[in-house]
């Protein structure tokens, strides 16, 4: 696999991820408006939203129960996962090309991303 084909595959993967994410966020948004359209909202004061929107476990559980905010957040998680998947695919691609230097470089980036996301476990 040459660089160009590798990049084309990665590009298509990213687009699919974004479409999937946007569809999930849209579905969650429709559900949210159906249930909460008349709520008074103000975001002037910051207050963290709790486990339902702040941790992977909370998001997955609330999305599975069709909680509208959980579903939106799950869509956003899919979105955050697309660049991570891109880097993971690059690791594999460079390894297949037997390009050890860039397989390692991509792996370092992947490890940084995973370590960062583990904060929200």
């Amino acid at each position: 696999m040459d660089d160009q084909r590798l990049e084309t595959n990665i590009g298509n993967l990213l687009r699919t991820g974004v479409l999937l994410s946007a569809a999930t966020v849209f579905a969650g948004g429709v559900l949210y408006l159906a249930r909460h359209h008349a709520d008074r909202v103000s975001y002037h004061q910051f207050s963290a939203g709790g486990a339902i929107v702040q941790s992977f476990r909370g998001i997955l559980q609330s999305a599975a129960h069709l909680n509208s905010e959980g579903l939106i957040q799950f869509g956003l998680l899919l979105l955050i996962a697309t660049p991570v998947a891109r880097v993971a695919l690059a690791v594999v691609g460079f390894a297949l090309e037997r390009d050890r230097l860039y397989a390692v470089v991509s792996l370092i980036v992947l490890i940084i991303l995973v370590l960062s996301l583990m904060r929200a476990l």
Binding site: L14, V25, G28, G29, Y32, V41, Y43, F46, S47, A48, G49, G50, V53, Q54, S55, S68, E69, G70, I72, Q73, L76, I80, T82, P83, V84, R86, V87, V109, I112, L113, S116, L117, M118, R119, A120
Partner: peptide, 25 residues
């Protein structure tokens, strides 16, 4: 840009900066 942003997303998410009601629209 996307990879860079994904690296701070973990911090933002765990701190509650990403509110679904604001981020959705």
């Amino acid at each position: 840009i996307g990879v860079t942003a994904a690296a701070s997303a973990g911090v933002y998410l765990s701190r509650g900066y990403i509110d679904p009601r604001v981020a959705m629209p």
